Amino acid sequence: MSYEKARETAGFIKAKYDKEIKIAVVLGSGLGAFADEVENAVKIPYEEIPNFARSTVEGHAGRLILGEIEGVSVAVQQGRFHYYEGYDISQVVFPVRTFGLLGVKSLILTNAAGSVNTDFKQGSLMLIRDHINLMGINPLRGKNDERFGVRFPDMTEVYSLEYQEIVIAESKKMAQEKAVRRETETGKKQTANYFLRRGVYCGLSGPSYETPSEIRL
């Protein structure tokens, strides 16, 4: 989708919320309730936003939430668009390009996914350190518009090492605090359970799950 359409959408959002947005968050399946943490929230259904697609997957509310968390202005996508819903890949990534025109510098992506690592249990929290694109398509394919970015972007550090260190430190702190609470409650020495996992995300087009052979691959 064109730069002009992204600029139109960014202008619409700015008219609804005039503060400078610092961080954008895309909520995946099961995480929609996080949007309730946004203070002074402005809630806009996707169908009211020019050029936005619609969320058709169960559990994706289909709203853009604008407001503050801990005093920081954020944009929260409560539900996203998937390639397997039949949308063109340019429609899928369109919100992120719009966030860029709004001045967003930090993007937090979340999702629910299966794991091929048998050490991971259902409900495990994994921090993505890198990804492998197995979708057979790239959203940057086609004529490049330099107003969005360079033709050949550097993918060396797609996932901020600085932010990863913050997440790791906070997860350890949470685990230690939980161990202290349990020790106080039980009177027995507790070992901190460091619950955070790290891994590489493999992107596939869906909507079918992977076959056993694909998993072994």
Rank of each mutant, 00 (worst) to 15 (best):
G28F: 11
E20C: 07
Y46N: 12
A41I: 02
E58G: 12
F12I: 01
K43R: 14
D36T: 15
S55G: 11
V26K: 13
G30P: 00
A53Q: 11
A24S: 15
V57T: 11
E37K: 15
F12S: 01
K19I: 14
K14A: 01
V38S: 07
G62F: 04
P45Y: 01
S29T: 15
P45V: 02
G11S: 04
I44F: 06
G28M: 06
I23Y: 10
A33D: 13
G62H: 08
Y17N: 02
K19W: 11
A24M: 09
I13M: 00
I49L: 07
G62A: 05
F34N: 00
I13F: 01
D18G: 01
E39H: 14
G62P: 06
E48G: 03
I21C: 13
K16D: 01
D36S: 14
N51W: 13
V42K: 14
V26W: 11
E39N: 14
A35K: 07
H60F: 00
V25L: 14
G28P: 02
F34W: 04
G28Q: 04
F34E: 03
L31E: 04
E37F: 10
A53R: 11
A10K: 00
I23R: 09
I23K: 06
V42Q: 09
K14I: 00
A41F: 01
F12Y: 02
A61R: 15
G11W: 01
G59A: 04
V38E: 05
K14E: 06
P50I: 07
K14G: 00
E58S: 10
S55K: 05
A61H: 14
A61F: 07
G11K: 02
V38R: 06
E20D: 14
P50K: 08
D36M: 14
F12A: 01
E47Q: 10
V25C: 04
V42F: 14
V38W: 08
D18A: 05
Y17D: 05
N51Y: 15
S55E: 05
T56C: 05
A41Q: 02
A53G: 12
L27G: 06
Y46R: 12
A61T: 12
Y46E: 12
G28V: 04
I13P: 00
G32S: 09
G32K: 11
A24P: 11
S55T: 11
G62S: 07
A10M: 05
A15Q: 13
S55M: 06
A53E: 13
G59W: 12
I23P: 00
A10Q: 00
Y46Q: 12
A24E: 04
E37H: 14
N51K: 13
Y17H: 04
A24N: 09
L31H: 03
A35C: 08
F52K: 06
G32L: 11
E48N: 12
E58P: 09
F34D: 01
G32W: 09
K22N: 08
K43I: 12
V26L: 15
E37Q: 14
N40Y: 06
G11T: 02
K16H: 05
D36E: 15
I49V: 08
E58C: 08
Y17P: 07
I49Y: 06
S29A: 08
N40Q: 09
A10T: 04
D36V: 12
D36G: 10
K14F: 00
Y17I: 04
N40S: 10
T56I: 04
F12M: 00
S29H: 04
